[in-house]
């Protein structure tokens, strides 16, 4: 437990012998002298779970983009003669729903809508939350204002925000994403603020200030890169939350408009038939799980790859 300082077998005694043998546990040898971008990429590739996550995401994104080409039917195409076909039925690989719509086609298009909402919402949260979080953590004078603003946003009911937004700008997928993104801003601010508060007290920040580094330079060069791990974790958690949040809004008619599908709406619609045709819920549910898993695995791997200290648990 106390054995954390030295990590190498001793070298032959010279003035600075240990420099030669400094390859540390968990750091792949050979990755040391490569340029930084190459090193991050190499370490990303070396993490098997990260590769799985990246593959899941790549396939999800590709199928979502290529949905019009891949889908056997239009997602809205109704087959009244074939409702509730189980998966494996000829012509309907994943089965059909209550209106006889092909689940495979709906999943492909639904994936597209859900990814859009997830990414869009998190981009909104990042774009607003990260700068405000940095400012709140770094500038004492702004902290009170921004923190009160955060509390206010947290207290403001998410649904009322979404209804209000829909009333002003109309109900659409984009507006649902905006509403979800706004609701995720306080969480992002808090995470970034607390990281900033911790980091700005460290001596390397003080050393920079002594050498005349400006506030923006300290934030950009020292604080943001070190806060990145926390931001990535927060973002990968936020995307699945956004995908599910979209289901709620769409269920209330504030998000995507029927008959267009999203994974969330498919799951929501399926609940009334869950006993009779469980696959109508299982298929979109599974899709959500797989996409979520993809984001989490990839996010963790990215965090580890960006951290020069290597993977830590």
């Amino acid at each position: 437990m106390t054995q954390t300082s030295g990590t190498t077998p001793p070298e032959t005694p010279t003035v600075e012998p240990s420099v030669a043998g400094l390859a540390t546990m968990g750091t792949p040898p050979g990755g040391e002298t490569a340029p930084r971008r190459g090193r991050v990429w190499r370490r990303l590739r070396r993490n098997p779970l990260g590769v799985v996550g990246a593959l899941i995401l790549a396939i999800s994104i590709a199928t979502a983009l290529l949905a019009p080409l891949l889908a056997p039917y239009s997602p809205a195409a109704v087959h009244f003669d074939a409702p509730f076909q189980p998966p494996g039925t000829v012509g309907f690989g994943l089965g059909t729903d209550d209106l006889g719509r092909d689940l495979l086609s709906r999943i492909l298009f639904g994936l597209r809508a859900s990814l859009e909402v997830g990414v869009l919402a998190v981009v909104v949260a990042l774009a607003v939350g990260v700068p405000l979080g940095l400012a709140a953590g770094y500038f004492r004078a702004l902290d009170a204002v921004i923190s009160r603003f955060t509390d206010l946003m947290l207290a403001f009911p998410f649904l009322i925000l979404a209804v209000g937004l829909a009333a002003i700008r109309g109900a659409s997928l984009g507006n649902a994403a905006l509403a979800i993104g706004i609701s995720q801003i306080p969480g992002m601010i808090r995470v970034v603020r607390s990281e900033t508060l911790r980091l700005k007290e460290l001596d390397f920040v003080a050393a920079s200030v002594v050498d005349g580094a400006g506030d923006l330079s300290v934030l950009a060069r020292h604080i943001l890169p070190n806060a990145l791990s926390a931001v990535i974790v927060q973002a990968t958690v936020a995307i699945p939350v956004a995908i599910l949040g979209e289901a709620v809004l769409s269920f209330l008619g504030l998000g995507i408009q029927p008959p267009d599908p999203s994974l969330g709406t498919m799951l929501a619609e399926a609940q009334q038939y869950a006993a009779r045709a469980p696959w109508t819920a299982i298929v979109p549910g599974l899709a959500i799980v797989v996409v979520t898993l993809g984001f989490n695995l990839f996010g963790d791997a990215l965090r580890d790859a960006l951290d020069p200290r290597g993977s830590r648990r």
Binding site: L202, D203, A207, S208, V210, G212, P308
Partner: peptide
């Protein structure tokens, strides 16, 4: 004027290489 701090664990930015760390004063000044 320059300063050396007590704790070598927190006085070096873990995200930067030693070269970037030592070169920072030259860049800033």
């Amino acid at each position: 004027v320059s300063i050396v701090f007590q704790d070598p664990a927190s006085s070096l930015d873990p995200r930067l290489t030693v070269g970037d760390i030592v070169g920072e004063p030259l860049r800033l000044l």
